Simulated scan of single mutants.
Amino acid sequence: MPATSPPSSAPDAQALGTGGRIVQANNLDVLPTLASGSFTLIYLDPPFNTGRVQRRQGTTAVRASAGTGTITGFKGNSYDRIKGDLLRYDDVFENYWEFLEPRLLEAWRLLADDGTLYLHLDYREAHYAKVLLDALFGRESFLNEIIWAYDYGAKSKTRWPTKHDTILVYVKNPDAYFFNSEEVDREPYMAPGLVTPERAARGKLPTDVWWHTIVSPTGHEKTGYPTQKPEGILRRIVQASSRPDDAVLDFFAGSGTTGAVASALGRRFTLVDQNPEAIAVMRARLPGATFEALDSRA
């Protein structure tokens, strides 16, 4: 059962970035240096698999019974790597999931017992990710598949336009995870005439389908970073799955939206990215954060 805590007020906006750390490095070099169980919330927005289509020998992980697999897993379980021409990869990565899998293993280790992982992907990879996370975390740790739907940009005339991302939500311990829906900002009813005026005025709790615009090209949030996600999406995640002063981790940090939202809501954060452009955006956006360069190019 999820634990809850009462709502809290956000800190002064001038403190933005305070309590945060920005690290320039390959995330796989940084993650092993962080203490196990350090973070209540991990949000990951890894590179989407959107490049050239190429078919090759794929690798995936399948959960096996305790002690029977070739690799020791979580809670005494183990899993086998099953190789075969099973997966179709859409990127310049030699193997996208060999890139992502060790980082997800680290995410599991770094989550606190009451912690939650939010993995943000697009439609090309979400179904593969679900299979992989079921193997690594256990199916019992699956909490939600969130659909973020938006309506902006070009529209295809040869198929249904693709206007959504998928966010997979997994918990470290299905019996102890933290979740507080009362802290989440409410949204308007789509049919307010079907509820009482009092309920319509209060608004409703979001479901697992989130209608939210992308970052406006002319809006105040815009940093110029190409994969920037809107603060409203991260705000909902941070409100629901962390408490004030909890630690939040994003090791594909990009424009730093996770840190900006975490700071505004009184959470501590660690952001990791290797891209110098991302680091420059984050340092300007979060001037109160401490900065560390572990990358040889920094």
Rank of each mutant, 00 (worst) to 15 (best):
residue 2 P to G: 00
residue 50 T to Y: 04
residue 281 V to A: 03
residue 136 L to W: 04
residue 57 Q to D: 07
residue 244 P to I: 00
residue 190 M to P: 08
residue 286 L to F: 01
residue 276 P to M: 06
residue 148 W to N: 11
residue 106 E to R: 05
residue 247 A to F: 13
residue 246 D to R: 04
residue 26 N to L: 11
residue 265 L to E: 10
residue 30 V to K: 02
residue 35 A to F: 03
residue 39 F to V: 06
residue 86 L to G: 14
residue 132 L to R: 12
residue 283 R to E: 00
residue 267 R to K: 07
residue 234 L to T: 04
residue 124 R to D: 08
residue 30 V to G: 08
residue 26 N to M: 06
residue 39 F to G: 00
residue 45 D to E: 11
residue 121 L to Y: 02
residue 220 H to G: 03
residue 5 S to R: 09
residue 247 A to K: 10
residue 274 Q to I: 10
residue 53 V to S: 14
residue 285 R to T: 05
residue 200 A to T: 09
residue 90 D to R: 15
residue 44 L to Y: 01
residue 136 L to M: 13
residue 164 H to E: 04
residue 73 G to S: 08
residue 19 G to P: 07
residue 49 N to W: 15
residue 264 A to N: 12
residue 49 N to Y: 14
residue 222 K to F: 13
residue 71 I to L: 12
residue 263 S to Y: 00
residue 117 L to K: 08
residue 293 A to I: 13
residue 232 G to T: 12
residue 44 L to C: 03
residue 127 H to G: 11
residue 249 L to I: 00
residue 172 K to R: 15
residue 229 K to S: 06
residue 243 R to K: 14
residue 241 S to K: 09
residue 132 L to W: 04
residue 101 E to R: 15
residue 127 H to P: 01
residue 172 K to H: 13
residue 83 K to D: 09
residue 167 I to F: 01
residue 155 K to F: 12
residue 109 R to G: 12
residue 140 E to M: 09
residue 93 F to S: 08
residue 147 I to M: 09
residue 70 T to L: 06
residue 244 P to F: 07
residue 84 G to T: 10
